[in-house]
Design a protein around this nucleic acid. Structure first.
Length: 184
DNA sequence: GATAAGATGTTA
DNA sequence: AACATCTTATCA
């Protein structure tokens, strides 16, 4: 079992089942350093994507894009979607086992427009340059810290958004009544 | 409020 | 051709 503390989250946290990591990332703080400033928001919505999941980019094996998902846990996985947006994930599971958690929404601390995966990447200036950053290292320009702990009863489990395959998997998690959770 | 469609370019 | 999205338009 992962031992929670304060401060940066280490690799052991991500080296677990993707569904558990997705749920446990709620309440954690995503930090992005740009120049001398650090932009921050609390993660309030996530989705899990696993190797044998038809909706996962790794479902058909390693490709140039999906290779990141098979690497060690605790790396960023950033992809470009719909011709204009980026989405940010964190890799999970042991090396050679694919898995990632999509970060879908942040409760902003010093940023705006973070209620959706494309919007939060725009707000934090996350692009493909930030693919495969080690988010367990606060010398990176992107990392995650332990922060607020929500209770189990504040977490809603439901189906993922924007996919046609495996649309019935209850692999989306969000904080109940949080106004920054993305709309359907 | 709801629903529909257009923007835009990477991926396999 | 599909896509782990968002914005704007057009209803009501």
């Amino acid at each position: 079992m992962y031992n929670f503390g304060m401060g940066i989250i280490h690799r052991d946290f991500y080296n677990r089942d993707t569904l558990v990591v997705a749920k446990d990332l709620l309440g954690c703080k995503l930090c992005r350093r740009i120049g001398g400033k650090v932009l921050e928001g609390i993660i309030v919505e996530t989705e899990a994507y696993k190797q044998n999941d038809p909706a996962c980019h790794a479902y058909r094996g390693k490709t140039p894009r999906s290779a990141t998902l098979f690497k060690m846990p605790g790396l960023s996985y950033v992809y470009f979607i719909y011709g204009m947006y980026h989405c940010v994930n964190v890799t999970t599971e042991p090396e050679e086992t694919a898995g990632a958690v999509l970060i879908r929404a942040l409760d902003p601390i010093n940023i705006e427009n973070t209620n959706g995966p494309g919007k939060l990447c725009r707000a934090l200036e996350i692009t493909k340059e930030l693919n495969e950053v080690d988010v367990t290292d606060n010398e990176s320009s992107l990392w995650i810290e332990d922060c607020k702990k929500y209770s189990e009863s504040d977490i809603v489990t439901t189906t993922r958004i924007g996919i046609k395959v495996a649309a019935d998997y209850p692999w989306r998690f969000y904080i109940k009544n949080n106004k920054f959770v993305s709309k359907l």
